Amino acid sequence: MPAELKDKLGIAVSTQAYRDYRNLLDSDRWQRLESMGARPQRLLFASTSTKDPSAPDTLYVEALAAPNTVNTMPDKTLLAFGDHGKVSGVLPPNGGDCEETLAAFEKAGISVSDLAAQLQKEGAASFVKSWEDLLQSIETKSKALG
């Protein structure tokens, strides 16, 4: 990928998701539900550690700060942010330049939708493996106690 796009895809997709989330909360439909007592679910940014060792270790924590969101991260990332992280702003409710950034990836020959499908498949497989590992651990401990 072109150097100017390095470490920008996850942030652009997250910004797009936050824009869509804010649009939903601003919609007439949601406003009616809220007036009847409904509460919004917070948008989750999950496991936002930096995978690229050449990128700042607080890259995603700093970039994805936004009201009404939850950001989960490994302890190492949390400690790094506590040590030297800085939030200079929050995600723009209108999405900022996320569409232009995503278009630049497409122009560079990277299919964002194909990549998303691949990552969803890999993520689901990872969760299944974790679940199977948990069940195996429970079975092993049950046998040891039984």
Rank of each mutant, 00 (worst) to 15 (best):
S35Y: 00
S35N: 13
R22C: 14
W131E: 15
D57S: 11
A80W: 00
S27D: 13
A116I: 08
A63Y: 00
A55M: 01
Y18S: 13
S130V: 06
R42G: 07
P74G: 13
L25E: 10
A38Q: 09
P92I: 03
G96C: 10
A46I: 02
E99S: 14
C98W: 05
Q136H: 12
P56K: 06
K6Q: 11
A38W: 01
L91I: 11
L119H: 05
S35H: 04
Y18R: 04
Q16V: 11
S35P: 05
Q118F: 05
M73W: 00
S142I: 12
Y18P: 15
D97H: 08
L115T: 12
D83K: 14
A80K: 05
T50R: 07
D7C: 06
A117Q: 09
A116N: 08
V87C: 13
L78T: 03
Y18V: 13
H84Q: 10
E4W: 01
L24C: 06
N68W: 02
F45R: 09
I138A: 11
D57E: 11
A63S: 12
L44M: 09
S113I: 06
G95H: 07
K76W: 00
S49I: 03
G123I: 07
N23W: 02
K8H: 05
W131H: 14
R22P: 08
S54V: 07
S111P: 13
K107M: 09
R42H: 10
K107S: 15
P56A: 13
L115A: 11
L78A: 14
I11E: 11
V87S: 12
L91K: 02
L24N: 07
D28R: 09
L33Y: 06
L59T: 12
L44W: 09
V112Y: 01
Q120I: 09
P53Q: 03
K51I: 11
S126E: 14
